[in-house]
Amino acid sequence: MDEHRIGLKPIRRPVWAPTGQPLTCPVQPGNEWLYVYAFANPESGESLFWLIPVVNKQAYVAVMAAFARMVGAGADHRVLVVQDGAGFHVPPDDGHPEGIQTVTLPPYSPELQPAERLWALTDVSIANRAFDSIEEVELALSERCVWLEAQPDLITQHTLFHWWPLLAN
């Protein structure tokens, strides 16, 4: 599980251009933000995405509760969530939803976080584009996230590290 900030500040990617011709990329910079919360199962490729206007403890708790409901976490179905050590990754006083257990990665170790590799996939839909409003960004991003949720093989290719512990059948 991880979060990613997206906004009106453009994401630029290299593109091909004819030799000798200048390349221009229109931008509409702004300081409005949207946050993508993503969960991915590296082995199965299952993924869930939420687009949220803030990143804080309350949003984290709400998304974690929604995730627990979506995957059916409970007394009979335990789910291990790997997350970074962000300061807002704090469960409410009564703990995480039943069936959810978290493992926090060491500080400054994004290379260990499978969900960190999802951002290259989500950003494809908005890279090198200028948006007039955060709502336009949200629409483009939501379409991409819905598409990604239906691409388990692609998610596995990007998140299943060679050292990831696989479930025994």
Rank of each mutant, 00 (worst) to 15 (best):
M1D: 05
H4E: 12
H4Y: 15
R5F: 12
I6C: 03
L8C: 03
L8E: 00
P10A: 06
P10Y: 08
I11Q: 07
R13G: 07
P14D: 11
P14M: 12
P14N: 11
P18G: 14
P18Y: 11
P18W: 07
P18C: 10
P18I: 09
G20R: 11
Q21D: 13
Q21I: 06
Q21Y: 14
P22I: 06
P22W: 13
V27L: 11
Q28D: 11
Q28K: 10
G30Y: 04
G30I: 03
W33T: 05
Y35M: 04
V36F: 06
V36K: 04
Y37E: 00
F39G: 03
F39C: 05
A40H: 05
P42M: 11
P42T: 01
E43Q: 05
E46P: 01
S47A: 15
F49P: 05
L51D: 02
V55G: 13
V55D: 12
N56D: 15
Q58V: 11
A59Y: 04
A59Q: 10
V63C: 06
A68Q: 00
M70R: 14
M70F: 12
V71K: 01
G72Y: 07
A75Y: 11
D76R: 12
D76H: 13
H77I: 12
H77W: 09
V79N: 00
L80T: 14
L80N: 06
V81E: 08
D84F: 05
G85Y: 07
G85L: 09
A86M: 12
A86N: 09
G87V: 10
G87N: 09
G87R: 03
F88N: 07
F88L: 12
H89E: 08
H89P: 03
P91E: 10
P91C: 08
P92C: 06
D93E: 15
G95E: 12
G95H: 05
H96G: 08
P97F: 07
P97A: 09
E98F: 06
G99I: 03
G99R: 01
I100T: 00
Q101A: 13
T104K: 10
T104A: 05
L105R: 02
L105G: 00
P106M: 07
P106F: 08
P106E: 00
P107Q: 00
Y108A: 11
S109R: 04
P110K: 02
E111K: 14
L112P: 03
Q113H: 08
P114R: 05
E116I: 00
R117H: 10
L118C: 01
L118F: 04
W119I: 01
A120C: 11
A120I: 13
T122C: 03
T122M: 04
T122F: 03
D123A: 10
I126D: 03
A127I: 01
R129H: 09
R129N: 03
A130E: 07
D132C: 13
E135A: 15
E136S: 06
V137F: 00
V137H: 04
E138W: 07
E138Q: 10
A140P: 02
S142W: 12
E143N: 15
C145I: 06
L148M: 04
Q151P: 04
Q151V: 07
L154W: 06
I155Y: 04
I155F: 02
I155P: 02
I155N: 00
I155H: 00
Q157C: 13
T159A: 11
L160W: 02
H162Q: 12
W164L: 09
P165A: 14
P165Y: 13
P165E: 14
L166S: 09
A168Q: 15
N169K: 12
N169A: 15
N169P: 13
